[in-house]
């Protein structure tokens, strides 16, 4: 079922059914999207629950002219970024940096099945500034259009292209120097 059909169902009063269809269509993608930011399975699980609670609560205010898919990704991206910001604030009072915490989570994660290069790729992504990280994840892994990323992040397409270009080159250089 398409997003438009789901929203039609919701507006017709079939709210729970529409929400269940959103869960079916998006839960795995949203989990993976969040996991790429927070690395730990447990954190990603908690945040995915939070995202869907927010989706359910905010669905009545969803504008019919917006895209459901970018709206959901925006909620998920904000949730993941807020989590990382809080984590960063907590590390102000500790010896560990927020980056090193994420690297440790990645290394200790029993559900990380990547090889050495994939692990190094993730470590290089951790070092990126927040905005570059968001655009890199959405463009490189999800192969999203810049127009959609612009809707999710509220940034212009031009700025996103520049951010992606910088991020891509930084990561490429890091992996070349291994």
């Amino acid at each position: 079922m398409t997003d438009k059909e789901i929203i039609y169902l919701y507006n017709k009063g079939q709210r729970e059914l529409a929400f269940n269809l959103i869960v079916q269509n998006y839960s795995e993608r949203i989990y993976q999207h969040i996991r790429r930011f927070v690395y730990s399975h447990d954190d990603a699980d908690d945040l995915t629950q939070e995202v869907f609670i927010k989706i359910w609560a905010a669905l009545p205010s969803f504008r019919a002219d917006a895209q459901l898919f970018t709206w959901i990704y925006r909620i998920a991206t904000n949730e993941a970024i807020n989590f990382l910001r809080k984590q960063k604030l907590r590390t102000m009072f500790s010896l560990d940096s927020s980056d090193s915490i994420l690297v440790r989570k990645l290394q200790q994660d029993e559900y990380f099945n990547g090889d050495k290069i994939q692990a190094e790729l993730q470590k290089a992504i951790i070092k990126l500034p927040e905005k570059q990280r968001v655009v890199f994840n959405l463009r490189y892994f999800d192969e999203m259009k810049y127009e959609d990323i612009a809707e999710i992040t509220g940034t212009s397409v031009g700025a996103l292209k520049a951010s992606y270009h910088h991020a891509y080159n930084k990561i490429k250089e890091t992996l070349l120097n291994l």
Binding site: Y31, Q32, R35, R36, Y39, H41, D109, Y111, F112, N113, G114, D115, I117, Q118, A119, L121, Q122, Y140, F141, E143
Partner: peptide, 10 residues
Amino acid sequence: QLKNSPFSVP
């Protein structure tokens, strides 16, 4: 190959 998710789940 790098685009494949390295993250698994229980």
